[in-house]
């Protein structure tokens, strides 16, 4: 009886122990699941935080890099622009200087050609034609700063005008040009020559026309 009781108790104990173990296992699994779930959640949160942190840093870095690149680019562009502007300015100044030199040379050359034509028409006794060429020569020499040649041309223009019989002999188509060119010749620098030429022209215009017919 005692044995049975003991056995029973033993069995009971075993059953009880087994039951506790089962309970414990259930509890262990339960907590383990919770733990696992929490771990997963925690991992997800951590991963999300890392991802967010990474993305945030990435974005910040990208923006910073972009800004830095833009800044460097702007600085570089400005430096190149400044350098180019300085070079262009220098080139323009040199070019302008050279152009003025060449322009003056061309103007003098043009004046020389006009002077030659003035001489030619004078030699042909076509003084009215020679006159306008002398004026053109004087104008070119004066704007090129060739004072002596300008004075000579103005003097020759006066001599041609003095040889004209009547003002009517001039080419009426070119009188407007003569007036414009003459007005552009420096009044102060060539005052004497211009005044003498005006006096000669006035004399020529005052001559009365010989009538025929």
């Amino acid at each position: 009886m005692v044995l049975v009781k003991n056995n029973f108790m033993f069995i009971y104990a075993i059953v009880a122990t087994t039951s506790e173990i089962v309970d414990f296992k259930i509890a262990e699994n339960y907590f383990s699941d919770i733990l696992n779930a929490q771990l997963v959640i925690f991992s997800v949160i951590v991963a999300a935080l890392i991802a967010f942190y990474f993305l945030f840093n990435f974005k910040i870095s990208k923006e910073q890099i972009r800004k830095e690149i833009e800044k460097i680019s702007e600085d570089f562009k400005k430096a190149i622009q400044d350098e180019n502007e300085a070079k262009i300015k220098e080139l323009s100044e040199n070019l302008a200087k050279k152009l003025v030199e060449h322009e003056d040379m061309i103007t003098v050359l043009r004046g020389t050609v006009h002077r030659t034509l003035g001489q030619f028409w004078d030699s042909e006794k076509s003084y009215a034609t020679a006159f306008i060429w002398w004026i053109r020569a004087a104008h070119n020499f004066s704007i090129a700063g060739e004072e002596n040649l300008a004075r000579l041309a103005l003097g020759s223009a006066r001599e041609s005008v003095e040889k004209i019989n009547f003002g009517y002999e001039l080419n009426y188509d070119l009188i407007g040009e003569y007036q414009r060119l003459f007005a552009e010749i420096n009044d102060k620098l060539y005052k004497i020559e211009k005044d003498l030429l005006d006096t000669a022209i006035k004399g020529t215009l005052s001559k009365k026309l010989e009538e025929k017919g």
């Binding site: 009188i175 407007g176 040009e177 003569y178 007036q179 022209i201």
Partner: peptide, 19 residues
Amino acid sequence: KIFWIAFDKENEDWLVKVL
């Protein structure tokens, strides 16, 4: 005085010169 009024074809304008 002598007024010389001429037409300048380049500027298409009448010019007046007083002598």
